[in-house]
Design a protein around this nucleic acid. Structure first.
Lengths: 154, 154
DNA sequence: TAAGATTGAAATGTCAATCTTA
DNA sequence: TAAGATTGACATTTCAATCTTA
């Protein structure tokens, strides 16, 4: 039981440090925050990407995603286009400038992942880490968030 | 290389979901956010706890920690006492009400850790996860944050 | 009625400047 | 000068309310 608290602590504190260091280097060398880069990576790899798709991929709220896209758009890195299939939503696309920035930023991103995650671990330890994280993430995002109150099952 | 991005993604998204679900249940059932509970746990387990000690333990800034202690103090859950050993700092202590809240909240906290981290994994997978997270955290917090510019080596 | 999205207010974190004491 | 802490300005996220279209 007490061991689980240590796992939680290492997980959360490492994520904080990892995010902070990558974010600082991306701002310094590329002029883009890590949060924006993550949004751009989802847009780039999702055909016909909607705000909703970004929110799902990043596990954040739709409202927060809408504002993140606002910031990207204001910086000239993406645009919203009419969605011919559903007029409630837009299709989000990277601009040419956005794609260029993405190309240079992912180099820094990958370099930091190598330094902070791969380098300290053996190949097998890295494999175990990846597998375990995939399992718990899948479990947490699949299973009902909680039994808040049986929802409305009629 | 591309595998590292998947590890980063699972790590960050799982942390987001994990934090969000524990936080929501703590607010609902105990009236305390997870961030505040984490601060209280550090105070409770650190003799002569200063603001600086909390910041180190949680891997957040001293400024942010000072504000977090402000909120806890305003809620009557901790107090700042004069530090006889150093008049620049204070000793932070939990109040009686703070200790009582901590006692009930950790039960919920541990229950959520069990549900979201332990349950989906085998005992050996959990062991591997804990070991790997400990390694990367230690590596990231020990090694120089980066070679920002050789610092000032004279 | 529900789904996709937007908006404004509140919470919480970072950063830089400042203050007091070592 | 440096260490511990505080403060205010700013950034980013969640939540709730609202709007438009399926």
């Amino acid at each position: 039981v007490t061991g689980l608290r240590a796992v939680f602590d290492d997980l959360v504190r490492f994520e904080t440090v990892l995010w902070g260091e990558i974010d600082a280097r991306l701002r310094r060398e590329c002029g883009v925050p890590l949060g924006s880069l993550n949004v751009m990576m989802v847009i780039d790899s999702t055909p016909g990407c909607r705000v909703y798709d970004i929110a799902q991929a990043l596990a954040i709220t739709v409202g927060g995603t809408s504002q993140a896209v606002d910031r990207l758009e204001a910086a000239g890195r993406c645009v919203r286009r009419a969605n011919p299939a559903d007029r409630r939503s837009s299709i989000v696309k990277l601009t040419v400038a956005g794609k260029a920035l993405l190309g240079t930023a992912v180099v820094v991103f990958d370099d930091e992942l190598d330094r902070l995650i791969r380098a300290p671990l053996s190949a097998t330890a890295l494999g175990h880490l990846g597998a375990a994280l995939h399992t718990v993430r899948h479990s947490a995002t699949t299973a009902a968030p909680q039994d808040v109150e049986q929802a409305h099952l009629e």
